[in-house]
Design a protein around this nucleic acid. Sequence first.
DNA 1: TCTGGGGTCCTAGGACCC
DNA 2: TCTGGGGTCCTAGGACCC
Length: 452
Amino acid sequence: MFRYTGPLASGSSPLPAATPRICCLDLDTFFVSVERTLDASLEGKPVIVGGRPGQRGVVTACSYEVREFGVRSGMSLTQAAQLAPRAIFLPVRHGTYGDYAKRVVHIAERFSPVIRVASIDEMFIDFRGSERLYHAPDDATDDETIERVVWQLTDAIAGELGLPSSAGIATSKVIAKVASGLAKPRGVLMVPAGQETELLAPLPVRKFPGIGPVAAKKLEAAGILTLGQLADMPYNKLTHVFGAWTGNVYRGVHGHGSADMGPARRAFREHDPSGETVGSISNERTFREDEGDPTVLDSMLCALCERVSWRARKRGVKARTVTLKLRYADFVTLSRSKTTSPTHSEKHVLGIVRELYRRANTTTGKIRLLGVALTNLGPGEQLNLFENQDRLHTVVDHVRARFGFDAVRLAAASTREVDQGNGHGEHRTWGGKGTHDTTTRADPTTDPTTPP
DNA sequence: TCTGGGGTCCTAGGACCC
DNA sequence: TCTGGGGTCCTAGGACCC
């Protein structure tokens, strides 16, 4: 086993990425793989994580066995059930996946000190300057050595956690990410310096991170289908499509993407090192059925305000801007926001949200979704049991810190909870796809939303 | 039975200040 | 009374990612 003991304690190497040393590591069908490590009988079977067919929801993750039938993540559960009626449908258990994600990061940290977590199932690892730290046969090039090390990493993740993963190694993050996608499943793809454009050229434009359906459609209208064609476009013709992001795209498709790893500890984004505040805290919930009852709607607003305020207190931040999100039955979505003095008090947040709601909801149509977001975050007192002025908050927060948010609910948010049942007889809280509400598979030791 | 939930970043118009 | 720009903040919406 390799163990990094070298001099690079933190931060990214100043060396230019003239050689492929940026690795993008991506877990294969991550949520499905975690479910399989916890239930071996799922191995080799068609598995869909996201909820039950019939629920309002989408496919969050799916195994390769169901992809054969055309199932894709983001597809509605109903549609997925039509395509793959024999698939095994599982609810999402975010807490459990988060625990496994941390364990993957711990394994990766044995291989390099410079790691940036990009999402729950994806991270970038910088190997610049690390070649000499690894034992290699005399005839191996540095590229071969790093590729071998990355294989060791994926083997360690598979061996210790039972999770398959893939990786791309390149001179920039974008190319590494594209390569990790091409390497799936269970592969490692090294892109030698200078071969980036060759790799990209035949790929459809959608393979490039940041080109979504809208940009792809605009490009298609201009006759651009592949990344090779995109690379042939002059810079100024791309600005119409990509705006401020044109430079990134242009450099990326020409193989000159960024290898900057950014500041350390991206996982804690409320404050960046300069003291600037970034990030947001939001919760939203789609009703099981479109809702018109003002009492239920207000209760949901209460619950959402409670939750986001609690998360803000837990993370020691206050928000200056509160945003209400509202989606009607016809999917028309609008938002209203207000900026005031910094707060993480749910009473304060709820007051603002109710005002925004009165301003926004001028029709009588039924409502599909409500959401509350806190942005413009700044420093606030860290959650503290004894020094906070609001005694109720602190006691409640203390219990929640130990047992999870749902261990304590304020009265207003709990009034209609029982009415939200899904007809299957399980315990249930707000919303359509709670983590512990639909099967007997809930794991109280790893799921922070499960009451003790 | 179409269309989840958590984010980040960008745009564009208007208010307001100098 | 008529008239500039530049800068910043606020608000609403939208693209994109996993």
